[in-house]
Simulated assay, not measured.
Amino acid sequence: MLASSAWRRGFGALADVNVSFDLTCRHTQLSPFAKFLSKHPDIPVIVDHLGSPVLGDGHVQEVWLDGIQALAALPNTFMKISGLSQAGSHWSTSSIRPLVDQVLGAFGSERCMLGSNFTVEKLTSSYNAVWMAY
């Protein structure tokens, strides 16, 4: 999307209609999006699903965390703590806690929100398990 001039123009037009943008992307795309979003401070952006971390791989975690910190540095970005199964289909409260702690540390609780993403989450857990994890 970032390579498309038409998409970039369309994104910029969001400021004219006073709406927010939900960003769902891979962890490798977080930093490039942060660079792009820094040029659009008037458009609120909600990063979905913890920024799509992947459990277990140290290098991947570094890439994810760098992107999270770059996005959190922008005052117009917010984090939706949701999509826990995207981090790993066998996630648990203890495996997801460090990711949530890092997101809360970066964005602060005032710029975070919860979401269930339950239609997808029910493939790996119950509704009760997701909310109990929160």
Rank of each mutant, 00 (worst) to 15 (best):
F21W: 13
G10A: 07
H27A: 12
M79D: 07
A72W: 01
Y127F: 14
A34G: 03
S82K: 09
M132Q: 15
A72S: 11
G12Y: 06
S89L: 09
D22G: 02
G108A: 08
L23E: 06
G12R: 10
H40I: 10
L104E: 15
T124F: 15
C112L: 00
V17I: 15
V100T: 13
G58A: 14
S109N: 08
H27K: 09
W131G: 05
A34F: 04
V47N: 01
K122L: 15
W7L: 07
Q69F: 06
V130A: 02
L84V: 05
N117F: 01
S94R: 13
M132W: 02
E62G: 06
L99Q: 08
K35A: 14
S89N: 11
F36A: 15
V130S: 01
V47Y: 00
S20A: 15
D48K: 03
V63Y: 13
N117Y: 05
D48E: 14
D57W: 04
L55N: 04
S31T: 13
T119K: 11
V120R: 10
S38G: 14
P32H: 06
L99D: 04
W131M: 13
H49N: 12
S5V: 14
H90F: 12
L65V: 11
S109A: 12
A129T: 14
D16Q: 15
F36G: 01
I43R: 05
L50P: 05
R26P: 00
K35N: 11
R26K: 14
C112Q: 02
